[in-house]
Simulated assay, not measured.
Amino acid sequence: MKSLIKWIAIGFGTGLSPVMPGTVGTLVGLPLAWGLMQIHGWAAQAIICVLLTLLSIPICEVAEKMIGGKDPGCIVADEYLTLPITVIGLANPWALLSGFVLHRIFDITKPPPIKQLQHIHGGFGITIDDFLAALIALGLNHLIFHYFG
């Protein structure tokens, strides 16, 4: 069971990419985000995203203990399970691309308040920065598609 959790945590192998494992691992979230966009009603979409985020916490917790170290780069479940947040309430397929790019920018650069959360350990600590990055990306995605799309 633990090896299955680890396999999920490393994005079915994508987190083992020698180049930009977080970005490569986030690609796993694109089908999830696309599927989310097919569900009518932002409230239902938000509930699903909360559940995916909550699922990320124990997955990342177990994998971190198995792999060792704080927030190993190969753990990407936090990235791909929070990516769908970036498209809540949006129907334009281009929102997938902008959501992906914005999510990665905010996860990599960690602007405040994301940076201040880096001291938190465990699955919650691994997931919370991606959750906030996704929320910021969601806000910007809505601005982009409200004004330009």
Rank of each mutant, 00 (worst) to 15 (best):
H40Y: 06
W7H: 12
L55C: 14
G125T: 10
F148I: 14
D78V: 06
D71W: 11
V28R: 00
H121S: 15
D129N: 09
I67E: 15
T26V: 07
G69T: 12
G29R: 00
H146N: 12
G68S: 12
A133T: 07
L27H: 01
L97H: 03
R104V: 04
I88R: 00
T26A: 14
M20R: 06
G25M: 04
T26C: 07
K115E: 11
F106I: 04
I10L: 12
N92L: 06
G35N: 10
I108S: 02
L143W: 14
I144Y: 06
H121E: 15
W7F: 15
I85C: 08
A33D: 03
L96M: 07
G11P: 06
L16Y: 12
L83D: 00
T86A: 13
F124T: 09
V19A: 07
G123W: 09
G22W: 03
V24T: 02
E64I: 05
V76N: 12
L81R: 01
I120N: 03
P84N: 01
L32D: 00
W94F: 15
D130Q: 09
I59L: 14
M66W: 10
K110D: 03
I10H: 03
L51A: 14
H119R: 13
D78G: 10
S98H: 01
Q45E: 04
T14F: 13
Q118R: 14
H146L: 11
K115R: 15
G89N: 12
L27Y: 02
F131G: 05
C49Q: 00
L36I: 09
Q45S: 10
V24I: 15
N141W: 09
C74R: 12
G22D: 11
A137P: 02
K115M: 10
